[in-house]
Amino acid sequence: MRIRLNGEEIDTTAKDLAALIEDRGFDVSGVATALNGEFVPRALRAETRLAEGDAVEVLRPMQGG
């Protein structure tokens, strides 16, 4: 299935958001996630199914002003 992850088209076999985070090797508790522009809390990632064409954002702390 093709999705957009942080603006980049990727192929994934992950069925849900939790599996995607795991597959990509992201820090599970250090990142925040959004699906199609809506925040998905950590506790709901496993039950958040992914579909073709979904846009996923995975964000982490960075420098800011």
């Binding site: 992201f26 990142v31 964000l59 982490r60 702390p61 960075m62 420098q63």
Partner: peptide, 23 residues
């Protein structure tokens, strides 16, 4: 101090983690 949230990337993960540990 102020901080932001930015896209996670495999390449930047280590530097990002170091920044957050420092803060």
């Amino acid at each position: 101090v102020t901080v932001s949230l930015r896209r996670e990337s495999a390449a930047g993960a280590k530097a990002g983690q170091a920044f957050w540990e420092l803060v």
